[in-house]
Design a binder for these strands. Sequence first.
DNA 1: CGGGATCCATTAGGATACTG
DNA 2: CAGTATCCTAATGGATCCCG
Lengths: 110, 110
Amino acid sequence: MIHQRQCPIETIIHVLGGKWKPQILWHLIDSTKRFSDLEKLIPNASQKMLTQHLRNLEQEGIIERKIYPTVPPKVEYSLSDYGKTLLPVAEVMCAWGENHNKQEIREPAS
Amino acid sequence: MIHQRQCPIETIIHVLGGKWKPQILWHLIDSTKRFSDLEKLIPNASQKMLTQHLRNLEQEGIIERKIYPTVPPKVEYSLSDYGKTLLPVAEVMCAWGENHNKQEIREPAS
DNA sequence: CGGGATCCATTAGGATACTG
DNA sequence: CAGTATCCTAATGGATCCCG
């Protein structure tokens, strides 16, 4: 699964490029969330995909997963310090994307 | 195909997120290229995917396609002015990606 | 509660052949 | 030269059931 990417842009696209990853990160910005919280916040994501994306983000070091060995189990996800280095980048990406969404309805150049 | 994206990050990932799109853009930064040039520059991309990604980027307004009605045909691709607004964003993404590639071999935190 | 396992649908990407 | 068209495989995402 880990292969060399010729352009580092592909790296960040790979890290962020899962259908629900941006939303997951978005919800973790301000506070730690439990698995069930994320399920409620992102209701269209299936359990499987939520789990899978959370695992991916964890492997990349972006988020942290804390397990409380209680019954019933409790698992908390949070943005790691390293993950926070993504935020400024995400902001720039967001700004361009937001503008692009507006541009999409512009008239074609003559 | 056009659907609302809840987070604008998804927009830019959608625009850049094709296997060969970053490379296409990279090669168009400094100069206009013909289709056959891009084929040589990105030899692993199939004709089909190259065409498909070029069409996508054109539809998004990122690149321009100029057809010379000669025989044999000649088609030139170039970055549009609007496409150039992506460059600073791409740079930031690149920088993070580059650093991330180094981090990947770091030892896990204790 | 927070998953794992399994099976299915959709999409992305690739190989090859053909054409104006 | 710059593609289309067709067929195929791989990867992603989703639905459902089960379990400690």
